[in-house]
Amino acid sequence: MNAKLSDQIPVRAHVFGTAVMKNGQKRKFDHMYEFSYLNLQPQGVHLYDLQTPTGVYCPRAKNTKALPTPSSAFHFTSEIIYGQSISRIKEYFDFDLNLVRYDYDPIGPEKKFGSLPLTQVHDFSTGVAYVIDQLRGNCTATPISGTGFDVRNANDPSHVRIRTSKEFFYFDKASYMYEGRRVVRGINSDVWISQRNDWPAPGSSNSTWEWYFATPNYTEMLLQKPSFGIPVRMVLDAGLGQHYIYNIYDYDERRPSIWSYDISNCFNYTERKDFSFKLPGNFRKLVSGDMEIFRYGVLKAIIAAGSVNKLQLSSLRIYNIKGFYSTTSF
């Protein structure tokens, strides 16, 4: 005869015995576990309940999914939430051309350039930052500050270089652990977490960095499939009230147009020279297929031709590239 037992409710577990330590010694143990509020229904357990809580970093945890690798060029808009304040910044990054641009509303020390919206273009080929008033067109040229978020000191504090894309997202010098998936801004996201002791300066107390990336089923609907993925949010907690939330919008890893770094307002017509050259052959189909790629290729060729040894011609010195056929312009 078959007998069906009713669901049993555990109330206590008594575990005792002897454990062997790493050094070979034996240690007796005696543990008592009390159970309460037990739910035997599987639908009562959500995947998120089995993950590490938000903001908790476990240094000895094993990473189960590789962190995405950023591309060498991208642009996006970021919303920064700190306490009761919200600020926005639009950023352009091109490691291959040594250029960074960001648009922002000045606060604090940045108001020395005015209180209207500003654009900064950093030319790491020359070490010069161009600060442009977006409404008035005023331009100030100044050395790139060694404290910028896009800057790394090269050999000494007076020489700077552009960050790599990994350094830009603070993926360097840190071991990120995959936490699982969470919903943020209504988007299913993969989450990685790490801990550093070099922010805002080397030797600082530990800060926790949490990155959220949209899951593949979210990005598969996009016309432009990103190789890096779509970053959605970054949460930085450095303790002592230093808690920042970076919401990232309109992330695009396609190379920003070279004209995005226009500094023509910083030079008058007497400081400009026009020149032209002619290429024999018929390249109409090739060029008309993607004019932006053609211009970028011409730009890279001019930079290579104008660079000597370690002195690289700045891409900002070349502007307004146009192409014409011998009979019809395009």
Rank of each mutant, 00 (worst) to 15 (best):
N2H: 12
N2C: 13
N2Y: 15
A3V: 15
I9P: 05
P10E: 12
P10S: 09
P10G: 05
V15G: 03
F16W: 11
F16K: 12
A19D: 10
N23V: 07
K28E: 15
D30Q: 05
D30R: 12
L38F: 14
L40Q: 15
G44N: 09
V45Y: 10
V45D: 11
H46R: 13
Q51L: 14
T52S: 11
P53V: 06
G55A: 04
P59W: 13
P59S: 10
P59T: 02
A61G: 11
K62L: 14
K62T: 11
N63Q: 04
L67G: 01
S71F: 05
S72F: 13
F76W: 09
R88E: 15
Y92Q: 04
D94G: 07
L99V: 02
V100P: 00
Y102V: 01
D103F: 09
D103I: 01
P109M: 10
K111L: 08
K112I: 13
L118F: 01
T119C: 09
F124E: 00
D133V: 03
L135E: 13
C139W: 02
T140F: 07
A141K: 12
I144P: 00
I144M: 02
V151D: 06
N155P: 04
V160E: 03
R163N: 08
S165E: 08
A174F: 04
M177W: 01
R181S: 03
V184I: 15
R185K: 15
R185L: 15
N188M: 07
S189Q: 03
I193Y: 01
D198I: 09
W199L: 14
W209M: 05
P216Q: 10
P216L: 12
E220C: 11
K225A: 15
V232N: 00
M234V: 13
L240Q: 14
Q242A: 14
H243D: 09
Y244E: 08
Y244L: 11
Y249R: 13
Y251I: 02
Y251Q: 05
D252Y: 05
D252R: 08
W259C: 14
Y261T: 02
I263V: 14
S264I: 03
N268R: 11
N268H: 13
Y269H: 13
T270W: 12
E271V: 01
K278H: 12
G281V: 09
N282Q: 13
N282V: 10
V287M: 07
S288M: 14
G289K: 07
F294Y: 11
R295L: 05
G297M: 09
K300F: 05
A301K: 11
A304S: 15
G306W: 09
V308G: 01
K310Y: 14
S314P: 04
F324Y: 13
S329W: 03
